Simulated assay, not measured.
Amino acid sequence: MNYSGVVVPAITPLEENGLLDEAAVERLWERFEQYGVDPFILGTTGEGPSLSLALKSAYIRLAGRLQTPRQRLFVGIGSACLEDSLALAFSAFEAGADAVVSTLPSYYALEVDDMRAYFLALADRVGGPLFIYNIPSTTHMSIPLSLVDELSGHPNIVGMKDSERGEERLFEALRRKPEGFCHLLGWSARSALALELGSNGLVPSSANLSPRLYRALYEAARAGQTEEAARLQKVSDALGEVYQKGRSLGASLAAMKAILAAKGICGPQMAPPLRAMAPPVGAASPLVLSQKDIDLINEWI
């Protein structure tokens, strides 16, 4: 299967009681379908590590029902427990998912041999296409590219979502990418560059705010329109700064939901331990936007 394109690491809309906000999920999916992007649920942006298995299962079932014939559905199954990851994978494929995505279990520091053994054990039993998810900012471990080379030979391991920062790593990953192995970039600031160098697609959290922007950036880069891709990269950088600059990862996700709440797409609720941020209304809000920020949001969201 061709996994290239824009994959949105979807937020998890929550009601005030902590349950899944199904109406908000439907609104998100309508926007994803409108702009031709694919959803990836239960990842970092989706607060996957903070959600109960029951809520994850409910999200998987709903995403499967909402999936259109055009869309591919990616489901995060990362867990500290191998059996829980497998249970989520089985549920995902039963619901119609096209691929599952797993980080390393991150409580214990792992040696390369541990990483290899874990992903092979997962891939042997997962029952469908599996993406390796490299995100050192949360797991505090980097999956070596030499190990990725080895794992790419497993028939169920079809690609890698790489969110590690560093151009040297990006250049090397794309230089040595095995034929038929999918590379998806989770580093928005290098989206245009990665596509120019041969990455298969993007997984930008800001696409929750503007799927239109990232579809346009992807199409421009794929068409060799380097000036337009560079222009849209600058828009992407500016949009990311609105909710990310000066904030931790968790706080930036809360700020993103606050912006989406102000636009009527979802509520601001977060899963503990993260806390909700009030929508940006007036100077009393913790998310104070400049007129330039407001104009950017109004143009692209």
Rank of each mutant, 00 (worst) to 15 (best):
S57A: 08
F93Y: 07
A97T: 07
A80P: 02
L82Y: 14
T68Y: 07
R72D: 00
F90W: 12
Q71S: 14
D84M: 07
A89S: 14
S79R: 13
F74Y: 15
G64I: 01
A80V: 02
I77P: 08
I60Y: 02
Q71N: 14
C81N: 14
L66V: 03
L82V: 10
S57P: 00
A63Y: 04
A89F: 09
P69M: 11
K56E: 02
L73A: 00
E94I: 09
D84R: 13
C81E: 13
R72W: 01
A87T: 15
A87Y: 05
L66R: 04
L66M: 11
K56T: 08
L86Q: 09
L86W: 04
L53Y: 02
G78P: 13
I60D: 04
V75K: 05
P69R: 12
V75D: 03
G64D: 01
R65N: 13
L62S: 01
Q67G: 09
A54G: 08
F93S: 01
S91Q: 12
L73Q: 03
R61H: 12
S91F: 05
I77N: 01
L62D: 00
L82R: 15
R61M: 09
A58K: 00
S85A: 15
F74G: 10
Q67C: 09
L55H: 12
A54D: 05
A97K: 06
F74Q: 10
L82F: 13
A63C: 07
G96I: 01
L73F: 00
E83G: 05
G64P: 01
F93W: 01
I77D: 00
A92N: 06
L88G: 06
A63S: 14
R70C: 03
S57G: 02
A92F: 00
L53F: 08
S57Y: 00
P69A: 13
V75P: 07
L53K: 07
A80E: 10
E83V: 03
Q71R: 13
E94R: 11
I60W: 04
S91V: 07
R70V: 06
P69G: 12
G64N: 03
R61A: 15
C81T: 11
Q71C: 14
A87G: 12
Q71T: 15
S85G: 13
G64K: 06
Q67Y: 08
